[in-house]
Structure formats: C-alpha cells, structure tokens
C-alpha cells in the first residue's frame, strides 16, 4: 500500500470520528495528539498546558470518558465520539455547568475552565450528588493557577443542583 505523506513530510492515515456530534473524516499524522487535531479543526477549548496529563486543561470526553487530549494519539480516536466544551450547548448558549461556573465566579483568567467544566460533566454523570470530598478527589488532577478552587467547588455543587434532568421533573 502506498503511504500518503502530508506537506510536512509526515505519514498520514485517514480517520473517521464524531466531534461534538458531527462526522469528521480526515487525514491525521501519526505524531499528532488530540489537542493538535482539535486546534486544526478550529476547536480551541482544550489547551495543551503541562503536556503530561496532570493539569487537566486539555480534558475532553472520548466516548463519554474524560481523558487528557495531550496524551491521546489523534489516530486512535478513529471510530470514537469526541466531545469538547464547544459542543456542550448550541452557539451563543451555555449549558448548566457553564452557567454554574459563571454564577459562582469560578474562574479568573479562564484558561483552565473548559477542562474543569468537562470534568464536572463526567463527575455528575457518575455521581448524582457528589460530596465535597468526592468533588475534591475527582478534580484533584485539574490545576487552576488563579486558585479559584473554593468557587469551583461551589460551582460543581450548583451545577449538581441545577442539572436539567433534575429541574425538569415536576
């Protein structure tokens, strides 16, 4: 089989995956990680910061599971469904977790916020009403250099109270 090479001289393979519900079908180089790929697709919410999986700024959901996109080889999301902060609500709108972060002022510079928001989604999917300890343990791998941690913990609790499936019930 002939190898296909991109403009940088890197060997590429075609992958198909869903990004925030939309089918993507494109050539990906073997060395690209998932943050590189998302940036190429104009998705900027996942940021490569530490590059080692310990800061959480690049958290995305792959098949509903939170992972560090900086440690995920892009070719290996072939066949998966990737969700980023951009896909949480229609353009111009915010979902209940994002609104809770604003309500509680749970950020200053905002760089780490998409990662915290995606982790919060994953936590609330696993645990309906997380305790403060559960929140702290689950988010221990996300760093906020502005140290908005008390507000972030409050935002998670607020999001847990305001989740749609809870407020929609009569």
């Amino acid at each position: 089989m002939m190898e296909k090479v991109n403009l940088d001289g890197a060997v590429v393979n075609r992958i198909r995956f869903k990004l925030n519900g939309r089918e993507k079908n494109l050539d990906v180089a073997s060395h690209e990680n998932l943050v590189d790929l998302l940036v190429r697709l104009d998705h900027f919410s996942a940021r490569e910061s530490c590059g080692q999986g310990l800061c959480g700024c690049c958290t995305v959901l792959v098949d509903e599971i939170p992972v560090s996109a900086c440690l995920t080889l892009a070719q290996l999301v072939d066949g998966s469904e990737v969700k980023t902060a951009e896909g949480l609500a229609p353009p111009g709108e915010l979902d209940f977790v994002q609104r809770a972060f604003i309500e509680e002022g749970a950020f200053q510079c905002g760089f780490c916020t998409p990662g915290f928001v995606m982790m919060t989604h994953a936590l609330l999917k696993e645990t309906v009403d997380p305790s403060e300890t559960e929140i702290r343990e689950y988010l221990a791998g996300n760093l906020c250099r502005c140290a908005a941690y008390p507000e972030i913990i409050r935002a998670v609790k607020t999001a847990a109270r305001n989740r749609p499936e809870r407020t929609e019930k009569p």
């Binding site: 939170p66 992972v67 440690l71 994953a122």
Partner: peptide, 12 residues
C-alpha cells in the same frame, strides 16, 4: 488506585 495520578490517567 484512588491516589494514583488522576481520573483521566486512570481512565486509560
């Protein structure tokens, strides 16, 4: 496992 790295690392 609870004190090993973080949730995302343990997930994969």
């Amino acid at each position: 496992m609870k004190r090993l790295a973080n949730v995302r690392v343990r997930n994969v």
